[in-house]
Design a protein around this nucleic acid. Structure first.
Length: 899
DNA sequence: CGCTTAACGTA
DNA sequence: CGTACGTTAAGCGC
């Protein structure tokens, strides 16, 4: 099994709709679409699977069966058949004709038959094929096809993950999985029912019961004949529902003799003509798939350098088996030194590297060149590994996947490191910043169309330091590099090399450093907040005469709308919102003390929750070590988690007490914070070239006062605080695609005033309006937006016929170049400042990044020099039409250091 | 137990 | 009917 029977031709028949539909749900629709907005995820998934099948199964004969419509003889017999299926998603429907075009271009025969379903065609071809001496492979996501499995007929069934992994069902596998023979399957299905086909079965009868009954009475007829003997509720259910079972059985029987105007030998697999495939693949923007087809045709399917294939257990093997990596060797001492030297010279782009990490420490490594790989155990202070250590520390180019964690392990293990030229995970994110590929295995699946063999973690023996995975990981990483790089624009490649790659070791260092947080301070704060919350809860309960869970929106809705009879708020999926702004509105219209207590209680519990989670995150060294997500946000921003240090409260006095708990370490003198002031507005000024805005920044005057003076036609000194507030909200809202409605809501002014405010604003700053309009227009043409530095973000939904989706995409597109450029700038600044600190031999260190702010720990006596270094690095990170203003503050804690 | 939702903290 | 994130508790379904 699993090995082609050399004597027999192989007939491969695929249920087209079923597999395309599986692919549609397995692959994110957002990530697969062409510039003009055509969704392609189902096509991509289907073709990817087909190529794997062609490569691995080498069928001699081949066909794909489609349903013509939802109508068939089954729906005529039972109108409700499949009647519960909702509308086919429109994003899917359009893909089927394109898939059929692509198959045609590949020379693959498609079959349809009026009044029958694709599965009936599979049944017919399987029956004929087995009779005519073929080995038949069926691919379907419909379980009814299990009945077709036999000596010469194998079913390949997609698992829940998607369509690239197919489970192989021959008779033995069916028996093992279901405990019955394939031909008994329809009887089981008839009893159990099939929700997806709208065929109710016998209530309370599942697979287990059905199989048990089959064992006792042979088949469905036997079971029904003995229905009176079956005791209990299920017995009664069976007697009540026997008609359902009989009907199900009739409908799930596949037709094995559909009249098809095709003979099996007409289905012989055609050689693929690349020139006819190319146009349609180009239309669909399938670059990597085109490469895979090309490789398949030109016979370079494996690319394993002729190394000995690694045998795989055939019984459980997925169809999508990756070509094997070269067998790895272990080299030490002189041999290792020689190999590294030679391989480095032979691979100017770099060697693949993957480190084995256990408990945060290095225990081994895999290194790959394009045709060889090394497996290295490693322990500290052993001379035989010296060449490896020297290579790691040298600037010899290295390519890794998800390097940051591995760099941290190197550092913990006392190993110096340099020469990271490419992290394929970061590169993959730059290609598709709405990241689907979160691991090496994902990247390999997407870019190489292969499956990384799963090593069993239970089999690893860490003490030996010989994780079998590392050499293969290194080898996959090396192979990924050119494929991923080819998918990047030139400016993105430059951004990757000059901004993202230098940042990787910087972030690793920041995470290792962590930041000191005072436990006692947090504990006191937590208990203060806890007491306050409890008191507020009691006051709230007293108002309504009962105790409810104030944290439960559901219970709050009962109190507010049923008990207190307040007017309904904005609808949510599950009822009516009880969020803070809605409660504030209610307080205006229907004042009630309960509302006030509830809001204050929310505040207190939210803060306490943050305090608690921070406290729990303090490590043994008294410091919190967050993890930065370099590939966290689609705009280019970073994220922070475990814990998130980028959302520490600041707006309220209580919140700032949390910041007071962030301290400098004992060896340091103080904390220093540096932030860009109004960086997004400055970027807007730069990108729009608006003379008024540019003047505002160059004048060095308070921005909002300056803008307010223009908008309200008064002198800057006469801008009132209220005017300033309005203009400030307006300015910031612009970069987010704020509407007049949104502005009126936020400022609690009426629509007309908000509209008037926007009108005045745009009359004075017309270039801003033109720019914002232009961004969206250009994005609709290109399908993506770009930052100042050329970072791209695709926006497939800009072409969506769905208004909500499209308008959401428009606002995101509006914002992306602004937020993304700011992210680029601070990333550049971080690398520069880190390098400058090292070059000057300073003891101060960068600890945190909060989007437009950096926090440093200042070594004694370095305050002034550090301030100069930071100011210089940040202010000169980009050369814009307006200056970058950097505000710096210093203090004993994070709050004091804010200015 | 795992998943989704509402709510809310930051820039 | 304002972008980008991460975290939490509640509630639901298995």
């Amino acid at each position: 099994m699993g090995v082609p029977d050399a004597d027999k031709p192989t007939l491969l028949v695929i249920d087209g709709h079923s597999l395309a539909f599986r692919a549609f749900y397995a692959l994110p629709v957002d990530s697969f679409s062409t510039r003009d907005g055509q969704h392609t995820n189902a096509i991509h998934g289907f073709l990817s699977m087909l190529l794997l099948l062609l490569q691995n199964e080498k069928p001699t004969h081949l066909a794909v069966a489609f349903d013509i419509s939802r109508q068939s003889f089954r729906t005529r017999e039972y109108a409700e058949y499949k009647g519960n299926r909702g509308e086919t998603p429109p994003e899917f429907r359009g893909q089927v004709p394109l898939l059929q075009d692509a198959l045609k271009a590949m020379g693959v025969r498609t079959l349809e038959k009026e009044d029958f379903e694709a599965d009936d065609i599979l049944a017919t071809l399987a029956t004929r094929g087995a009779a005519e001496g073929y080995r038949v492979l069926l691919v379907s996501g419909d379980r009814d096809t299990i009945q077709l499995v036999g000596d010469d007929v194998t079913l390949l069934y997609p698992n829940t993950q998607g369509v690239s992994q197919l489970k192989r069902y021959d008779t033995d596998a069916v028996v093992e999985r279901y405990g019955i023979r394939p031909e008994q399957y329809p009887d089981v299905a008839a009893l159990v029912g099939e929700t997806s086909d709208n065929l109710p079965g016998i209530p309370k009868v599942g697979e287990k019961t059905a199989v048990k009954w089959l064992g006792l009475y042979g088949d469905l007829d036997g079971i029904l004949a003995h229905a009176d003997e079956i005791k209990g509720v299920v017995g009664q259910n069976l007697r009540d529902g026997r008609e359902n079972a009989v009907r199900n059985r009739k409908l799930n029987q596949l037709v094995r003799d559909v009249e098809l105007d095709v003979e099996l030998d007409e289905l012989v697999a055609q050689p693929i003509d690349l020139e006819s495939v190319r146009p349609i693949f180009e239309r669909l923007e399938f670059r990597t798939l085109m490469e895979r087809v090309t490789k398949l045709v030109t016979g370079e399917a494996n690319g394993n350098g002729g190394a000995a294939p690694v045998p795989v257990p055939a019984a459980e093997a997925a169809v999508a088996e990756a070509p094997p990596a070269p067998t790895s060797r272990i080299l030490l001492d002189e041999e290792l030194a020689t190999w590294l030297q030679r391989a480095t010279a032979a691979e100017p782009a770099g060697l693949g590297l993957s480190l084995d990490v256990v408990d945060g420490r290095v225990i081994g490594a895999g290194i790959a060149s394009s045709d060889e790989s090394l497996r290295l155990p490693w322990q500290p202070d052993r001379a035989e590994y010296a060449p490896f250590e020297a290579w790691l520390a040298s600037d010899a180019p290295k390519i890794m996947t998800d390097a940051k964690g591995q760099l941290k392990a190197l550092s913990r293990s006392g190993l110096a490191f340099d020469g990271l030229v490419l992290d394929t995970l970061v590169a993959g994110w730059m290609v598709r910043p709405i990241l689907q590929e979160k691991s090496l295995a994902d990247l390999v699946a997407f870019y190489l169309g292969e499956t990384v063999p799963q090593s069993d973690p239970a089999l690893l023996v860490p003490e030996e330091g010989m994780d079998a995975g590392a050499p293969e990981y290194a080898w996959y990483t090396l192979r990924l590099a050119p494929v991923v790089l080819r998918s990047l624009s030139e400016s993105s490649r430059r951004l990757l090399a000059e901004v993202e790659m230098p940042l990787v070791p910087v972030l690793a260092a920041m995470e290792l450093r962590g930041v000191t947080v005072d436990h006692a301070e947090l504990a006191e704060l937590s208990s203060d907040l806890g007491e306050r919350a409890a008191a507020l809860a009691q006051s709230a309960f007293a108002e309504i005469g009962r105790e409810v869970n104030l944290g439960s929106p559901k219970q709050l809705q009962e109190v507010l709308f049923d008990q207190l009879g307040m007017p309904k708020t904005r609808a949510t999926k599950t009822g009516y919102t009880t969020d803070a702004s809605a409660l504030a509105d209610l307080q205006d219209s229907n004042p009630h003390p309960f509302l006030g207590y509830l809001l204050e209680h929310r505040d207190a519990t939210k803060l306490r929750q943050i305090v608690e989670s921070l406290d729990k995150a303090i490590a043994g060294d008294g410091r919190i070590h967050t993890t930065y997500g370099q590939i966290g946000a689609a705009t280019g921003r970073m994220s922070s988690n475990d814990p998130n240090l980028q959302n520490i409260p600041i707006r309220t006095a209580e919140g700032r007490r949390i910041r007071e708990a962030f301290r400098h370490g004992p060896e340091y003198a103080e904390l220093l914070t540096a932030d860009y002031s109004q960086i997004e507005m400055r970027i807007m000024a730069h990108l729009s070239g608006d003379p008024g805005l540019i003047e505002a920044f160059n004048a060095g005057e308070d921005l909002h006062r300056f803008v307010g003076a223009r908008v309200f036609s008064v002198d800057p000194v006469d801008v009132t605080p209220l005017m300033r507030t309005k203009v400030k909200a307006m300015s910031y809202g612009l970069a987010y695609g704020l509407s007049a409605f949104g502005l009126s809501k936020q400022l609690r002014i009426d629509r007309a005033e908000a509209t008037q405010l926007m009108k005045e604003y745009f009359e004075r700053f017309g270039a801003v309006r033109d720019y914002l309009r232009g961004v969206v227009e250009q994005a609709k043409i290109d399908g993506y937006t770009e930052t100042i530095f050329g970072r791209r973000r695709p926006f497939p939904d800009l072409a969506s016929p769905n208004r909500v989706l499209r308008e959401n995409a428009e606002r995101a597109a509006l914002n992306s170049p602004i937020q993304g450029s700011a992210a680029d700038i601070i990333k550049i600044a971080m690398s520069r400042v880190e390098a400058d600190i090292a070059a000057r031999g300073l003891g101060s260190r960068m600890l945190m990044q909060v989007h437009d702010e950096l926090v440093f720990e200042v070594a004694p006596g370095e305050s002034d020099v550090l301030e100069a270094v930071v100011r210089e690095g940040m202010a000169n990170a980009a050369d814009l039409q307006v200056p970058l203003d950097v505000q710096i503050g210093r203090g004993a804690n994070w709050d004091d250091a804010a200015h």
